[in-house]
Design a binder for these strands. Structure first.
Lengths: 462, 462
DNA sequence: CAATTTGTGGCTACACATTTA
DNA sequence: TTAAATGTGTAGCCACAAATT
């Protein structure tokens, strides 16, 4: 029997108890899902507490717990002990970022990599084709990469501070693919991974696919806060942590060397698996005075270091390097064989040749130059108030005011001819009061187009 | 309080109740896992019934259910209602098949694809490099394939009976990758997929990675038995079915056209998602008199059709085509973007050029010729007693007697210089009394080596 | 700092379905 | 055919932990 009449305490959600079928918890979960996906329950809405809803429906409150759990794992809602359960910011839509050529828009959304440099790659492909061993690249051999390709990879990563042997490196099909492999290999459904409050939206989606919960941790201008991480680790059972130390996506924050060591101490203490996505090492190592080494070096036995070549060398050739501790090796190899079989040796060979011939460094220095120019242009339109973030980042993180509806803002800007992403897309958990736009500087067809787009943006935002 | 003393009914497994910590079910599961992985509990061992073990440990029997469930999802054990719980045949080892070059062995294990034909591919790569639009293949554009590449794909699959539009096809990085994407996109942990008793071992491993349970269904010489499928579907909640109609791996069984229709009726009735791995269509369509069309055509809205080009065209270029119904499209695209971002347009372009230039058909006819010769050689050593199975299969399924320890047999044959796989590797669930070897005919360096290997094998088995 | 609110995790009870004897 | 054995699935009970007031 319900105890209260609820007339004085209106609940934000009153599911029709007649619509409930057995099993109750599944039925309730699907009612909730419907109301969220249909938009009836807006993002941020506080759902009734478990006990209250249970009372209303006259069932046990743990049955509500179960129903809520189903929706939480699907990323539709999130729960905060003590304060309640809320509809997630990105509940009703997919935040996957991919190339979308439908309209003639100025691309500030997807972060490309100044594709102007691809002409250099073209010549190198010809050199690879001329090699007498080309045929050897077309079979099933060496699923994790041919030994000399791995040597070239080590050569490439040496300047970032990575040192290992060919047994602990694998060539995979891009950094995103490396992340998928890592989650498949080392985590189980229901595991938790700590991330920054704002993080790479495709990692959020990947976590959903693998049914891994993300635990957002607060940070400051030097990266994630060790105390906050410590707090969460001691509170709940956390299995891993995802970091992008060289230039966090989307915030452009670089983790300082001291902070790396502090974080490493917490990670070591709680035996987390560190997933270090160091896609931007090429922009940071040797450039930023504070840069010492990747976190992998501090925690080699419990880390996966991922070095993608899409941003630094060429985006269309899907090649990334994974470096891992011995304890993780077997599981990772198994996941690679089952998800990829292998990565095309032809693609890997082109990247290898670019590295060994020195062309890769040439490409990098061109890209740095382009990044410098693009950032200079950006600061003409949006002066950088502080020195926060990476000075050469391929994207910027612009604080905005008064545009709380992420979807609507993105739509309006599309109407203005600009594709850009609102910060809500990058939220790993609950919402925050501050709002931003992530503005890719590396994806327009020309620097003129970049200027045009930024001009439209300044006008729109003022 | 325990009710019985158990002295008269010895249990196969008596965990130390003092070793149990809280939570009980996790602790118990890990004790069980240890004893299985260490080999203390051999494959096939019957575990104590849930109630009996509960009585012994003096806890509730559903706590045992939970512990068993954890191990079942990990593939360590399997449960049969009414008869009990058993240690799985492949519990203690990984059955992932991958290239393994460690020793100088004759390769009868991994199924390659007569790599002699790769010389033709070499010339085509040069043609691709000469194209003026090569640079356009090096960016993030067209993540599911460039429109004309998709047209070529449709062109290629037309002879297999596939007709669709470019919106319902995607280019991915090989058939195994397509399977990973399909499982990630369309299934949830705990879902069940029906498979043949013997099935592709990397699919079994993939199911483990995604925590999907396989439900083995009996079959005969024409493929899976519809009645058995119907029975299982009405008994438990099954979400999908995995079939290789053109030439099942490892049994070489081809599903007859009548059987396809009967199976389709059951699949439709129970709304299963059909995963049709039609890697061998090129060996079957137009070759086998009975061949009419893929099952995709019978169930276009609830099927994923996978057409790999590794076996038919070139194994090192990681390219497969996925064809799917509109209802599945969005989820599949999301999984592709998150697991691959895209497949190398360079690789896809080479395959496209091979198809459009007619070279692909040339390669196929060479491979068919090689397959014919290899099968002829095989039948000199192991006369085919019946007409069961595909006549041109790249591998054969040899019944053997008296070698029940799969691992030991594989080891002994390695000692003889041969790498080959025992049927236990391909078991999707419980064990069977019949034993086989899967013998790859397409992976030796020469036909002479094939003969040598087969000779050693006949001698060993007699 | 204590009381209250709210969510988490684990064990138990029980109805039910299938298989086997 | 019926009874016993055995596994499956759902809901309830309860101790506890964290956050709020």
């Amino acid at each position: 029997m319900p105890v209260n009449s609820f007339e004085h305490y209106p609940m934000s959600w009153k599911p029709d108890s007649k619509a409930l079928k057995r099993p109750l918890y599944k039925s309730l979960a699907s009612l909730l899902e419907q109301d969220i996906v249909s938009g009836f329950l807006a993002p941020g809405t506080k759902l009734p507490p478990q006990r209250e809803l249970a009372d209303f429906l006259d069932i046990n409150f743990t049955t509500i717990t179960r129903a809520y759990k189903i929706c939480e794992v699907k990323g539709l809602i999130y729960a905060v002990t003590g304060s309640g359960t809320f509809v997630a910011p990105n509940a009703a839509r997919s935040i996957t970022i991919s190339r979308d050529k439908t309209a003639n828009l100025i691309e500030f959304g997807l972060v490309s990599s100044f594709e102007q440099t691809n002409a250099i790659v073209k010549d190198t492909i010809q050199k690879v084709v001329d090699k007498r061993y080309l045929e050897q690249l077309l079979n099933y051999n060496d699923p994790t990469g041919i030994p000399y390709q791995k040597s070239a990879a080590l050569n490439w990563m040496e300047s970032f501070g990575i040192h290992t042997d060919p047994e602990h490196i694998a060539i995979v099909s891009g950094a995103q693919n490396a992340l998928a492999i890592t989650l498949a290999a080392l985590f189980e459904p229901g595991n938790r991974i700590a991330t920054d409050l704002y993080t790479y939206s495709n990692f959020i989606e990947l976590a959903k696919i693998f049914h891994i919960q993300l635990v957002p941790i607060k940070g400051d201008q030097f990266g994630m806060l060790p105390d906050e991480l410590e707090k969460q680790c001691s509170q709940t059972n956390i299995h891993g942590i995802f970091l992008m130390p060289s230039c966090s996506n989307p915030t452009t924050v670089m983790i300082s060397d001291i902070r790396k060591q502090e974080l490493a101490a917490v990670i070591r203490k709680h035996r987390l698996i560190l997933i270090e996505d160091d896609m931007h090492a090429f922009l940071t190592a040797g450039m930023i005075p504070d840069y010492q080494q990747p976190m992998f070096n501090l925690l080699p036995q419990q880390s996966v270091y991922i070095c993608g070549t899409s941003k630094s060398i060429c985006s269309g050739l899907r090649v990334a390097y994974m470096v891992y501790g011995d304890a993780l090796r077997e599981k990772i190899l198994r996941a690679i064989f089952n998800i990829n079989v292998k990565t095309s040796s032809l693609d890997a060979e082109v990247i290898t040749e670019l590295i060994l011939s020195g062309k890769a460094h040439e490409i990098v220095s061109q890209k740095k130059q382009l990044a410098q120019t693009a950032n200079d242009i950006y600061s003409e339109y949006f002066p950088l108030k502080t020195t926060v973030g990476h000075p050469l980042s391929f994207y910027r993180w612009l604080p905005i005011q008064g545009h709380n509806d992420a979807f609507q803002l993105e739509m309006h800007l599309k109407g203005q001819g600009i594709r850009v992403f609102h910060s809500d897309r990058f939220l790993s958990g609950q919402t925050t009061p501050e709002k931003y736009l992530r503005i890719a500087l590396s994806s327009t067809n020309s620097l003129d187009e970049l200027k045009t787009g930024l001009k439209i943006l300044t006008q729109y935002l003022n």
